[in-house]
Structures are given as C-alpha cells and as structure tokens.
Design a protein around this nucleic acid. Structure first.
Lengths: 191, 191
DNA sequence: CTAGTTAGGTACTAAATGGTACCGAATTAT
DNA sequence: ATAATTCGGTACCATTTAGTACCTAACTAG
C-alpha cells in the first residue's frame, strides 16, 4: 500500500557490517556507510534507526553469520576429530590473514579492542560472542582423549586466547612462517 | 631569551599517551587531549606539531618506556629463569587486567587493531615493537632446557600470540579464573 | 482515476572537528 | 628600562559530523 523499497536491507546491512568490521565504529562515518550501502540519507534513516543501532545490528549479524559458522565448524563431528577441527580453524584464520589484503581480522576481536569500554549494549553482545566461542572450543576439546572437564575448560580458554592473538597478529601483517609457528604451538596445547 | 614554558612537555606527552592508549586515535579528540594534558590550544601547537605527530610520539614513548620495560624483564637473568620470567610477565598482564578498572590493555595491541592499516608511519613503529617483543620472548625461551633455535623461535611466536590474546580478553573483562586458565596453557607451551 | 502511504533524494541544521591567527603576558639580553 | 622573543589563551576558520525536514516519486487500495 505504498512505494516499495528499492534496496535490500539485508544486503545493505551486510555492507555496513563489513565497513564497521574493517575500520571500526568511529572511523566509519555516516557518509562512508551510505556509500558502501549504496543508499542515501533518506533511505538510511527510514529503514534503520541511527548509526549506533546499525552498529549493534552489525554485531548481531556477525554473531549469527560468522560466529555461528565458526561454532558450527568447531562442533560438527562430520568435520573430523575435535583436534582436526581446532587445527583446521586456526589454519583458516592464518590463511585469511594472507588472502585478505584488507586485513579484516575478526570483527569480534576488533570490536573488543576499540568499542568494548564505550557502549554497554555492544559490550554485552561482545561478551556473549566470546562465551560462544569459548564453549565451542570446549566442546571440541572435550573429544580429545584423556581430558577431564576441568582440563578441557582450561584448554578451551587457552585456545580462545591463542585465537585472538593470531587475529591481532594478522592485523600486524604476520608472515606465513610466523602463522605456521603459532599454529604449531596450538598443536602442542592439544597433546 | 624568552618566556619559559609553564608545563613539562614530557609530562604532557605522558598524559597524551595514556589517552591514546585508552581510547585510540580517533576517539581522542583534540579537546580531550588538551584537557588531559592540561594545556591550551596555543601551547599545544607551539610545543608539538599536530595531533598525528603526538600520536606517533606516543607510540615511540610506549616503545621506550613500556615495551623496553617488558623486554628488559623478559631478558634479565636476575629475574629468575627464562621460564619464570615468561610466566611472571603473563601473571602481571593478568593482574593488570583486574587492577585497571579502565581496562587499558596494551597500547601496542590496541593500536594494531585500530590504527594499523591507516597510517604507514604508525604501522612501521608497531611492527618494530612486535619484533622487539618476539625477540625478547625468544631470548627467554632460549634458556629453557632442550630447545634448539628453531623450536625457540616457534615457541616465542606462540607466546607472542598468547600475549596479545590475553590482552584482548582483558578488554573483554576476563575473570580471574579465566586468566589463570590461560596462563596454565602458556605453562604447557614451556614444557 | 484518485487518495493515501511510504520510499528516495537533498537541502539544511547544530555541534564538533583539527588547525590558525593574533593578542597580551612573561621572560631575557642589552 | 626597553627591545626582542617566546609562551599562554582565545577567538576564529573551514570542514566534517550525525541527524532532520521536507519535497517529490512510486506504488496500492478503493
């Protein structure tokens, strides 16, 4: 009963997420957002609330799309042993650090560093994602032979920390050699 | 042969570094800087070049003061065995994450995430600091029994990644329990 | 065909941004 | 004392910021 939308809000949100992911909240100006989303101011404020709401939505989207993918991979018994899945994840992260000339890194990790303290809503979302990742590692580690619950939790947290560390080093432009070394250390945590 | 400065540029730079450290480059407005440095616009532009130059100087300062301190600790034979120094460093990091309600984290780590891609001068400084830390870990690891050069380099890089990981988790407000678990995993890398 | 409704586009606003100009104040060399 | 010089403070500047107002375009229900 009115004029239909000429853009796909879902696609636009996706572009917004990518921009926030890449450059963070402050560095992404509204004009930058409009450019990558390929919409104008009018459409933006009609379809969405404001910049901050879009940022929070981008975090949700990252959780639903990317984090869920990672959690799914880490906990999918069809993708090999727990050990293989963990190492596979780290290999993919290392590989991504080399393929993306953009050095995207991990939105969660980036956001933890540059937005964590500021926004309470964002912080809650970020902590939830951290917990999801930790629990996914925990489940994968649980499949290793001879690990009790306590040990599995410890290892999961060590892996989580190693994961973020690799992401940060990715932003520093780590060499293939260095990535390999980091992964070899992760391997040692699994023995 | 002129009016003397009424503030200590060194102290002011220190305050500037703290602010950049805490909130990053973009989030620290010039007014914020002037407030924490306790000087006015006139003094700022007389004593320093511009905001970006102060940021770069803050990175240098962090390198000279904090990174050098960490490197010194990691490589000082008077501070116990290589193993003890490494674990001591991680304990201090975990402790800092709890003492600072501010959740400062590590300026290097923060800057890698939110400024790395943007500024070429900053990036060079950051990569130099990363190398210094890696080499410090390498020297400490070299003191462990039964490690050859290759293995020491690998371990050093694993530790570097774990270090940044813990710093990121610190920004997420990690629990004391979680920090302990992460450190226990670091311990396993040293066996 | 028309009235009603919503989207798209743009001119605009108030506030904040980093940076400059320029003034008076404080000091020193003569 | 005075000239020279640098500092501290502030008014100002152009630009950019996120957000709003409002008009026209496009569509649908009747």
């Amino acid at each position: 009963m009115a004029r239909p939308r000429e853009f796909d809000p879902d696609e636009a949100m996706d572009k917004a997420m990518r921009l926030f992911w890449d450059v963070g909240y402050e560095e992404a100006s509204l004009n930058d957002l409009l450019r990558v989303m390929q919409i104008t101011r009018g459409s933006f404020y009609k379809a969405f609330q404001d910049k901050n709401a879009v940022y929070l939505a981008a975090l949700d989207r990252y959780n639903e799309r990317v984090v869920s993918g990672t959690v799914g991979y880490l906990t999918d018994p069809n993708m090999g042993s727990g050990r293989a899945r963990i190492l596979g994840l780290f290999s993919k992260v290392a590989e991504a650090a080399h393929k993306d000339g953009d050095r995207l890194g991990c939105f969660l990790c980036n956001a933890l560093v540059d937005k964590a303290a500021a926004d309470r809503q964002a912080e809650a979302k970020l902590q939830a994602m951290v917990r999801r990742l930790e629990n996914a590692f925990f489940r994968a580690v649980g499949e290793l032979p001879e690990v009790d619950e306590t040990r599995a939790r410890e290892t999961a947290r060590g892996l989580l920390s190693a994961y973020f560390g690799l992401r940060v080093l990715g932003r520093a432009g780590l060499s293939r050699e260095m990535a390999g070394d980091c992964i070899r250390q992760v391997e040692r945590l699994l023995d």
